[in-house]
Design a protein around this nucleic acid. Sequence first.
DNA 1: GTACTTTGATACAGTATGTTTCGCAAGTCC
DNA 2: GGACTTGCGAAACATACTGTATCAAAGTAC
Lengths: 203, 203
Amino acid sequence: MSHRGPVHRRSTPLEEEDPRVVRTRQAVREAVRSLVQRAGFEAVSHQKVAAEAGIGRATVYRHWPKRTDLLLDAIAEIEAPRDWQTSGDLATDLARGLERLQRTLSSSPLVPELVALIGRAEWDAELRETKAALLAAGTAGLRQALEAAIERRELPADHDLDTTIARLAGPLFYRRVLAHAPLDDAFVTTIITAYIHEVSHQD
Amino acid sequence: MSHRGPVHRRSTPLEEEDPRVVRTRQAVREAVRSLVQRAGFEAVSHQKVAAEAGIGRATVYRHWPKRTDLLLDAIAEIEAPRDWQTSGDLATDLARGLERLQRTLSSSPLVPELVALIGRAEWDAELRETKAALLAAGTAGLRQALEAAIERRELPADHDLDTTIARLAGPLFYRRVLAHAPLDDAFVTTIITAYIHEVSHQD
DNA sequence: GTACTTTGATACAGTATGTTTCGCAAGTCC
DNA sequence: GGACTTGCGAAACATACTGTATCAAAGTAC
């Protein structure tokens, strides 16, 4: 997977380094994004992408034989935070995690499209993996915050992380995607406050 | 909107009662459902529907000029509960509302498709209305439960219903659609218990 | 039976899909 | 630079889908 250095033989073309290929990939990726934002994933076809990118139709088919290939390529941007570390306080950590999710959900115009894709994952195994990966990346902050709290014995060791994440992140998705209401800070604060209150006042 | 009785004149064809039309509607509706469940909304086209329903292609175009019309028609099943009435206890009412939602989400194989549709609502005004209607119907029970509690002064008059509904229903949607985890009773109970505890132990 | 409507078969032009072919431009190797 | 290799894009192609129009046959109402 790493760089192979100046000495290499054409007989192992595993890595794409031909500048022409790089250019093509770049152009197509941008064309797909542009199309998606203007008209949705449904509007993405090999033909339209080729026209938008100003390249040949055959070239698009060569690199992305299936339509799904085009879509997945345009999504490969969302990543889990790599620099995460606990502040030592669950409330603070959760706030950070949820605010990150809030920002992602609020800012990206692709969110509704991702949801549409996710719905379609039912019929496409490849999409199912992508869905899981995206979700894991989006909620990684929350998961790490909770894990750190368990480590500190602030939460019981058998605390169900998935349940908690669903309860914390679910309302945000609901608001953004279904209710189409603004994801304001007050809303996020309400959720965190209630949860913290719940785990610190167990009776 | 009501039945007009045996006496009627052909000059006011506002109501469709021609048995041929009724048959067509029925056949198409079933064909769309069948197609959706087998291959998703994306697989629904006038052509495929006509073939599936065993009727002429032109007929499908006549009644459902746009593809969206076909899709919307297949969804017109989900309805808000008409017989709702409070039990006098918020916890019980909420449990009823959430369990209804749980049942709907768990049982209907159309749920992922609905979500896909919802995502697409960003680009279609008509779909946006449908989305809002579906959501309102699905969460009507919760809303009525909360309104009854306000009426009884169990909740403050300025309690934000939309926020609460998002916090109650959001986790269910998250689990079902995004995390693809089972919507078991324990999960639903956890959500309700936490919320009841929260509103009854205000400090 | 008569008047009216819906239906489905057929045909049509326009467009999209997916594949193949081939000359050319671009990149690589030495 | 020169020979070799590869990706590119234009074109052509068969096939399929879309949306509309026409029309005879069948169904419906009275």
